[in-house]
Simulated scan of single mutants.
Amino acid sequence: MIYRLLALFLMSASVAYAMGPWRDDCHGDTACQVGDRSYHVLEPDGWDGETPLPVLMHFHGWARQGTVVVNHERIAGATKLRGVLLVAPNGLGKSWDFWTSDTGDVPFADAVLEDVAKRYPIDPDRIYVSGYSYGGAMAWRYVCQSGNDTAALLGIAGSIRQTEDCPQAPAEVRHVHGTSDTVMDFPLGPGGDTTYPVALWRQKFGCDTATPRGDWSVVPILTLSRVEWTDCTQGRVALDTHPGGHFIPHGWVGRQLDELLGREPTYP
């Protein structure tokens, strides 16, 4: 999958630079069509129209659509300032089918990324997948099932079962969940294990030792605590927890993108 995306970029780059097709038919609130389905896309501020872009594909929450994502301060506000192309697929019935591996939403998301690569010069080594709530679970399902070699999963307050057998995996996993979440409950493990929300990836990556990284925050009203696994036989895993409920923490998406892109973390 990732090599097809790169090939599409190389073939379409000269046309894209000359004609700017990203401006012609869909952008922001105006959806791009992929067959009988659609998605939204938002460019970063100050983009020169030529430099290959990292991509954040974000799956919206239940009863929402991609228009919410491309206008969301805590998502689009982060990508616009960091040179990242934001891609927001639209779920059927404003929801996602992430419950089992037998889902049409994974090939749909693959088709979205292929279409994005026809419209924009993208960096195939920096494709990040995110989502919130039901969209967080869909992001987990996507990186579990898709053949796309995604660089990182950024999961927010939603996941699939930790007992799933995933044939694929991203290069890196970052997840955040509130311990008081009552919408998609914080998944405590045996004996009250608070690291259980990433048990699936810890097992798949062969991670052993949890390393506390301490508390951090970007706004005074919320403190997050981070645990990382960096001794894995492949990949790495990070888990941020906070005492709150079901929401996207201020600055969380931006912080993850800064770290993944090798930038000094800033807010917003």
Results as ranks from 00 to 15, higher is better:
111 A>T: 03
111 A>V: 02
112 V>E: 02
112 V>M: 01
113 L>M: 02
113 L>G: 01
113 L>P: 00
115 D>E: 13
115 D>Y: 13
116 V>Q: 14
118 K>P: 14
118 K>M: 15
119 R>C: 15
119 R>M: 15
119 R>L: 15
120 Y>K: 13
122 I>M: 11
123 D>Q: 01
124 P>C: 06
124 P>F: 05
125 D>A: 05
125 D>S: 01
125 D>W: 02
126 R>Q: 03
126 R>W: 01
126 R>I: 04
127 I>M: 00
128 Y>I: 01
128 Y>F: 00
128 Y>E: 00
133 S>C: 10
134 Y>A: 14
135 G>D: 08
135 G>P: 07
136 G>D: 07
138 M>R: 01
140 W>M: 09
141 R>V: 13
141 R>S: 12
142 Y>F: 11
142 Y>I: 04
143 V>F: 11
143 V>Q: 07
144 C>A: 10
145 Q>C: 15
145 Q>A: 14
146 S>Q: 15
146 S>F: 15
147 G>W: 14
148 N>R: 14
149 D>V: 15
153 L>A: 04
153 L>I: 06
153 L>H: 06
153 L>W: 08
153 L>Y: 08
153 L>S: 04
154 L>T: 02
159 S>R: 05
159 S>V: 13
160 I>C: 12
160 I>D: 15
162 Q>L: 03
162 Q>P: 06
163 T>W: 07
164 E>I: 14
164 E>F: 14
164 E>R: 11
166 C>V: 10
168 Q>A: 12
168 Q>I: 15
169 A>R: 14
170 P>C: 08
170 P>W: 10
175 H>G: 04
177 H>W: 06
180 S>N: 06
181 D>W: 03
181 D>N: 04
182 T>M: 09
182 T>W: 11
182 T>Y: 10
183 V>H: 06
183 V>W: 09
184 M>N: 08
184 M>V: 13
184 M>P: 10
184 M>A: 12
185 D>S: 10
186 F>Y: 05
187 P>E: 01
188 L>T: 14
189 G>F: 00
189 G>S: 01
191 G>A: 08
192 G>K: 02
192 G>C: 09
193 D>V: 04
193 D>M: 02
194 T>G: 12
194 T>F: 11
195 T>V: 14
195 T>M: 12
197 P>Q: 02
198 V>S: 03
198 V>F: 05
199 A>C: 08
202 R>W: 08
202 R>S: 03
203 Q>E: 07
205 F>L: 01
207 C>F: 05
208 D>G: 13
209 T>M: 08
209 T>D: 09
210 A>E: 13
211 T>F: 13
213 R>G: 06
214 G>Y: 07
217 S>E: 15
218 V>H: 09
219 V>E: 11
220 P>T: 03
221 I>V: 10
221 I>P: 07
221 I>M: 09
222 L>F: 12
224 L>Q: 00
224 L>A: 00
225 S>E: 07
226 R>W: 00
226 R>D: 02
227 V>W: 05
229 W>Y: 06
229 W>F: 07
230 T>M: 12
232 C>K: 09
233 T>C: 11
234 Q>P: 11
235 G>L: 11
235 G>I: 10
235 G>T: 07
236 R>D: 08
236 R>Y: 15
237 V>Q: 04
237 V>E: 02
238 A>T: 08
239 L>Q: 02
240 D>Y: 03
241 T>C: 05
241 T>I: 08
